[in-house]
Amino acid sequence: MDTKNIRLGVLDQSPVRKGLTAAEAVQETVELAKYTDALGYTRFWVSEHHNTGALAGSTPEVLMAHLAGQTKNIRIGSGGVMMPNHSALKVAENFRTLEALFPGRIDLGMGRAPGTDRHTAALLNPSNQFREQDFVEQLYDLNNFFHDRGDPGTPMAKIRAIPQVKTVPAMWLLSSSGQSGIFAAHFGMGFSFAHFINPNGGPQAVEAYRERFQPSEELQQQQANMAIFVFCSEDEEKVERHQALMDYRFNQFEKGAGIVPIGYDDIKHVTYSAGEQERIWYNRKRVIAGTPDRVKTRLTQLAEEYNVDEIIAVTITEHFEDRLQSYKLLAEMFIS
C-alpha cells in the first residue's frame, strides 16, 4: 500500500497529565486540533467519558463548537457521542446547530456504550435499559430528524429538530465489535473500528460492514477507518517509557482501580505477576509505539489488514511536546 494514500485522523480524549488541571487538559486539546489542522490531518474527533479524573472530555458537542471555530480545514467530530446517554432529538439538534455554524466540516461519530460505569450512566439517563434495540431505534429516529420526516400518524411526524438546515453531518458508528458495523452498513453510515479497545476481529468486522453496506442519502460508498493508540519518537528511551506507562494504565483499568494521572517515575519500579504480564502482552496489541520506521511499517500493515485508507491515531503522553512531536512524525510519513 502506498503510504501517501493513507489519510490520518486524531481521536483525542483530553487526557489530564500529572500536575495539570482538567481545564489545562482541554486547552491542550484545542492546541492539538490547531496543530494537526496545520499538518494536514483529515479529521479530529473528541470523546465522551464521565466520572474519571484522567480524561477531561465529557461533552464532545460543546468542545467541537470551539474546535471548529479555532481550525480551518480539518473535519471536527465526536468520537463519539454515547447514544444511550442522550435522546435522539437532542443529538440531532446539537449537530444541526454545529452543521449550521460549520457546514460540511462536522462528523457525528456515535457509540452504544455509556462511556462510563453503570451507576454514572444511570444518572446521565435514568431510563437507559442498555438494550440493543433501543440503540437501533435511536439511529432510525436520528435519520428522520436530520431529514425532517417521521412515520405518518405518529407524534414523531410532527416533531422537527431545530434549527432546520439543508446539510447533514457525516454519520459514523464507532465500535470495538462487529455488531455496530452491521448497523452502520444497514443505515448507510461510516464505520470506525476501535482497535485501541479491542485488537481482535477488526478486519473481519470491516469486511462484514463492506459486504452488507447499503447506500444512504448522504453516503453512496462505504467509508471505514480504524483507531489505534500510537506513539512515535526518534528517542528509543522515550518509546520504552511510554510503553511502560501504557502497560500500567491498562493493568490498573482491568483491575478496576481506575485511572489517575501518573508519570514514569511513579511506576518505573512496579513489578507484575505472571497473570498481569500475560495481560500486558495482550494489551500491547492495542498500541503501536516505536521509532518512525517501525511505526510506519506497522501502521501500513494494519491499514492493509483492515483494507482501509484512513487511520485514527490516539496518543496519550507524559509530556505535551511529545504528543505534538508524535503527530508531526506521523504527518511526515503519511501526509504529502
Score class of each variant (00 low, 15 high):
Ala244Tyr: 09
Leu63Asn: 05
Ser216Asn: 08
Met246Thr: 09
Ser14Leu: 00
Phe187His: 11
Ala313Ile: 01
Val168Pro: 02
Met333Lys: 09
Phe44Gln: 07
Gln301Pro: 00
Pro152Phe: 02
Met156Lys: 08
Phe253Thr: 02
Ser336Cys: 13
Trp172Cys: 01
Gly53Val: 11
Arg284Gly: 01
Asn144His: 15
Gln204Phe: 08
Ser87Leu: 05
Thr116Ala: 10
Ala274Cys: 07
Leu330Asn: 06
Lys238Gly: 07
Ile316Asn: 10
Gly290Asp: 00
Leu324Trp: 01
Asp265Arg: 04
Phe253Leu: 08
Arg149Val: 10
Gln325Lys: 08
Tyr41Asn: 09
Asn51Glu: 13
Gly9Asn: 01
Ile312Met: 15
Pro169Met: 01
Pro155Val: 00
Glu278Pro: 04
Asn144Ile: 03
Leu98Met: 08
Ala185Phe: 09
His49Ile: 12
Glu234Trp: 05
Pro103Leu: 00
Met171Ile: 15
Arg43Ala: 10
Asn85Cys: 04
Asp235Gln: 11
Val136Met: 07
Val10Ala: 04
Pro103Ala: 00
Glu254Ser: 03
Ile197Glu: 05
Cys232Ala: 15
Leu123Trp: 09
Asp322His: 14
Gln133Ala: 12
Gln222Glu: 13
Pro203Val: 01
Gly181His: 04
Met64Gly: 09
Asn225Ser: 13
Gly256Ser: 05
Asp2Ser: 13
Gly201Cys: 06
Met226Leu: 12
Glu218Cys: 06
Ser216Tyr: 04
Tyr248Val: 13
Leu173Pro: 06
Met83Arg: 04
Thr36Ser: 04
Glu61Ala: 15
Gly258Glu: 08
Leu302Asp: 02
Thr29Ile: 06
Leu11Tyr: 00
Glu276Trp: 05
Arg75Phe: 05
Ala170Lys: 12
Ile182Ser: 12
Tyr41Thr: 09
Glu276Ser: 06
Asp322Met: 08
Ile6Thr: 09
Glu332Arg: 15
Ser87Thr: 15
Ile76Asn: 00
Leu299Lys: 02
Gly79Tyr: 01
Leu329Glu: 07
Met333Leu: 14
Pro163Glu: 13
Glu237Ser: 15
His49Thr: 10
Phe334Pro: 15
Met83Ile: 05
Gly178Val: 01
Leu32Val: 10
Thr59Cys: 11
Phe145Leu: 06
Gln204Val: 06
Gly256Trp: 05
Asp322Gln: 14
Glu321Met: 08
Leu89Phe: 11
Thr3Asn: 12
Gly40Ile: 12
Leu299Pro: 02
Asp265Met: 06
Ala184Val: 01
Thr29Tyr: 05
Asn283Thr: 08
Val295Leu: 00
Leu245Met: 14
Thr116Cys: 10
Val62Thr: 15
Glu304Phe: 09
Asn5Val: 05
Gln133Leu: 12
Pro155Gly: 00
Gly115His: 01
Ala161Gln: 10
